[in-house]
Computed example of a mutant assay.
Amino acid sequence: MQRITHKVKRALSFKGLCLLGGTAGLFMSASVMAQAAATGPDLTALTDAVDFSTVITAILAVAASLMGLYMAWKGAQFVIRAVRGA
């Protein structure tokens, strides 16, 4: 059998058990506090007041225009290649 070291004896003593219980309680309370802080503040009052629909419409319109320009450019290149190959 292995010999019980001094650290094991101290951990199994009443003082060691109280220290272990206090440490466990500290970590559990810190875990609860961290979980409560992880939810963050409620900013729905601020975010509901902002309307991004016009900005989104403008961005999509610019993207559609660029896509149309790109398609016209590629179409012109296709026609030029077809004429040169004939």
Rank of each mutant, 00 (worst) to 15 (best):
F52G: 09
A38G: 01
L66F: 14
A76Y: 10
A63E: 06
G68P: 05
G40S: 01
I56R: 11
S65L: 15
G75F: 04
A49Q: 13
L66Q: 12
A61W: 03
G68T: 11
P41S: 09
I56F: 06
T47N: 07
D48V: 03
A64S: 13
M71A: 15
T47E: 04
T54S: 13
M67E: 07
A64W: 05
S65N: 11
A58L: 09
T57Y: 06
A49C: 01
T39M: 03
A76V: 15
I59W: 05
D48Q: 11
M67T: 14
A49M: 02
L60Q: 15
F78H: 03
A76P: 01
A58G: 11
G68I: 11
T54D: 15
W73I: 14
I56G: 02
P41Y: 04
T54A: 15
M67Q: 12
L46T: 10
L46C: 04
Q77H: 04
I59E: 07
A64I: 10
T47Q: 02
G40D: 01
S65G: 14
P41W: 02
T47Y: 10
Y70A: 15
P41T: 06
G68C: 07
L66H: 08
G68W: 02
D42E: 01
G40H: 01
T47P: 05
I59S: 08
P41F: 05
A76F: 12
T44E: 05
W73R: 08
W73N: 04
Y70H: 09
I59Y: 06
G75W: 05
A76E: 07
A38N: 03
M67I: 09
G68V: 11
W73H: 13
P41C: 02
A76D: 05
F52A: 11
V55I: 10
M67H: 10
S65E: 14
L60I: 08
T44K: 09
A58Q: 13
D51P: 01
A61Q: 09
S53E: 09
S65Q: 13
A61E: 14
D42S: 02
V55W: 06
G68E: 07
A76M: 12
A72L: 15
L46Y: 08
A72E: 06
I56K: 12
T47K: 00
A64M: 11
A76Q: 13
A49Y: 01
W73E: 07
V55M: 07
G75T: 08
A38L: 03
A63K: 11
S53V: 01
A63Q: 07
L43T: 05
V55P: 01
W73Q: 04
M67S: 14
F78W: 09
P41A: 12
G75N: 14
L43V: 09
A64E: 12
Y70N: 11
F52M: 12
M71Q: 13
F52I: 10
V55R: 08
S65T: 13
W73A: 15
